[in-house]
Lab assay of single mutants.
Amino acid sequence: MSIQHFRVALIPFFAAFCLPVFAHPETLVKVKDAEDQLGARVGYIELDLNSGKILESFRPEERFPMMSTFKVLLCGAVLSRVDAGQEQLGRRIHYSQNDLVKYSPVTEKHLTDGMTVRELCSAAITMSDNTAANLLLTTIGGPKELTAFLHNMGDHVTRLDRWEPELNEAIPNDERDTTMPAAMATTLRKLLTGELLTLASRQQLIDWMEADKVAGPLLRSALPAGWFIADKSGASERGSRGIIAALGPDGKPSRIVVIYTTGSQATMDERNRQIAEIGASLIKHW
């Protein structure tokens, strides 16, 4: 058993032996400061991975655009179909130039040979490839079927209504393609630790998130040596930015963190910096 498999397999085991986890309101002070700095709403939640207890939250039940963070949920739905014998990670999917949409750094290189379902999930999560996400959405029946999958998990909040890139429109008060921090954190925890997916599929999902290559300026920039993080970021119109993550010290995840912001006029660099500073406060007061 690899170190990674050891880590995921023991998450339920550690729940019975973990020390009490204490919240630190200092992080919420930073979240509120980020709102002031960005001139935008910020949603935040910090969840204990083992118990599911909410440690801190700010606007946990307000809607925010999901942006590309939905791609983790999408690959969770794909893995659920794999577990049920309805899909194979090794199945190759062929597509054409007409299928390519904006920001497809991986799929645009494989027009001649296509990509496997496994490769598409990797591209969608680690590189946020939009065509990969659309191709995967097609395999499960489209955005409405992803919403149905989430409903069956008990998440009646999170919804996907459109495809890439239209889902990134982020119109104020538009509930399409949105979630709430509390709903996203709970759903992510179920995917990573619950019985919905097999152990192998849970491991695969967290491996893809751990290999994320496009979230460096966010929480990863504040991470001390030896800490673990598996994450997925997102960005969209109207100053929207977000990240969902499982992270913790000693090389294993122990908390879920979800951060969303929307409605800012700030630059992408400034949005990144504010999220990184929230992460730094979280780690300092861990």
Rank of each mutant, 00 (worst) to 15 (best):
A245V: 03
S201N: 07
E210R: 13
D231A: 06
A200L: 09
R220V: 02
T262R: 08
L111S: 12
E87Q: 06
R118G: 14
G90V: 10
F70S: 06
I11G: 10
L135W: 00
A183G: 05
D269G: 11
K232H: 03
P249K: 07
F14Y: 14
S221A: 15
E87D: 10
L47V: 15
L38D: 07
A225S: 14
T198D: 09
T186R: 14
N168L: 00
I125R: 00
R159G: 00
A225Q: 13
G52Y: 03
R92G: 05
C75G: 08
L160G: 03
A235V: 04
D129V: 00
E164I: 03
A245T: 04
A133C: 03
R91T: 06
P217S: 11
G242K: 00
V257L: 06
Y103V: 04
S221C: 10
K144Q: 14
Q204S: 09
P60Q: 12
L146C: 04
N50H: 12
R176H: 06
S236D: 07
R271Q: 12
D174Y: 03
L282C: 07
E56W: 00
L89P: 06
V8K: 13
F70V: 09
A222S: 14
L111R: 06
A124G: 05
E46D: 05
P249Q: 06
L47E: 05
R59C: 02
V72G: 01
N134I: 02
W163V: 08
I171F: 14
T186L: 14
I93C: 05
T198C: 11
M153Q: 08
E56T: 09
R159L: 04
L218S: 02
F58C: 06
E166Y: 12
H94P: 08
P224L: 02
T198N: 10
A34V: 10
A225G: 11
I93P: 00
R271A: 10
P249I: 04
Q265M: 13
E277V: 09
I278V: 06
K252S: 10
L89H: 04
S233T: 12
A15C: 14
S221G: 08
T116I: 03
L73Q: 01
R41S: 08
D174R: 01
I206H: 06
K109Q: 14
E175M: 11
G85H: 11
L197I: 06
H110R: 09
T178G: 02
G248V: 03
S201R: 06
M180Q: 14
S240R: 02
A182L: 15
N98G: 13
R92E: 08
L160F: 07
P12G: 15
K232A: 02
G39D: 10
N134P: 06
R238E: 14
S281K: 11
G239W: 04
K213D: 10
P224S: 04
D177I: 00
E108K: 10
E119K: 04
R271W: 03
P60I: 08
D83L: 00
D212R: 05
N173A: 10
L38H: 06
H156A: 11
R238H: 15
A40W: 06
L160R: 01
L146H: 05
W208C: 03
R176N: 07
N168I: 02
D212K: 03
A132S: 07
Q274R: 09
I243F: 05
T69A: 05
V82N: 04
S264V: 06
K213Q: 14
L167T: 07
G226K: 08
K144L: 10
G90Q: 13
L196E: 09
S240F: 04
Q4R: 14
F6D: 08
T198S: 13
L136G: 00
E164V: 04
T198I: 05
G234V: 00
V21I: 10
T126H: 04
P25Q: 10
L160H: 04
Q86A: 10
P172T: 09
S264Y: 05
L10P: 10
A246F: 09
R162H: 08
E26K: 09
L188M: 10
E145L: 09
P165R: 03
L219C: 02
D269V: 12
F22S: 14
N50S: 15
V82I: 10
R255V: 03
A40N: 08
R41W: 05
S57D: 07
G52R: 04
A245I: 03
P60A: 15
G76V: 01
T178N: 02
L196H: 15
F13V: 11
G279D: 02
G242D: 02
R271S: 10
L282M: 15
R81N: 08
A183N: 08
P172K: 08
P12R: 06
A148D: 10
D36V: 13
V21C: 14
S254G: 10
H94K: 13
R202P: 15
H94S: 12
G239Q: 04
S240N: 11
E166M: 10
L146Q: 00
A276V: 09
N173M: 12
H94F: 15
P20Q: 13
I3S: 14
A183M: 09
Q88K: 15
C18Y: 11
R176A: 06
F149Q: 06
R176L: 08
T262A: 12
S2V: 10
K53M: 13
Q97T: 14
T126Q: 11
T178A: 02
R176P: 05
R241Y: 06
T178F: 02
S80H: 14
A9P: 12
G39Y: 07
A235T: 09
T178S: 10
T107G: 04
A183W: 07
N168R: 02
T126V: 08
S96V: 15
L135Y: 02
M153C: 12
K284L: 11
I283S: 04
M268N: 06
R92Q: 09
I125T: 04
T138V: 12
I244Y: 02
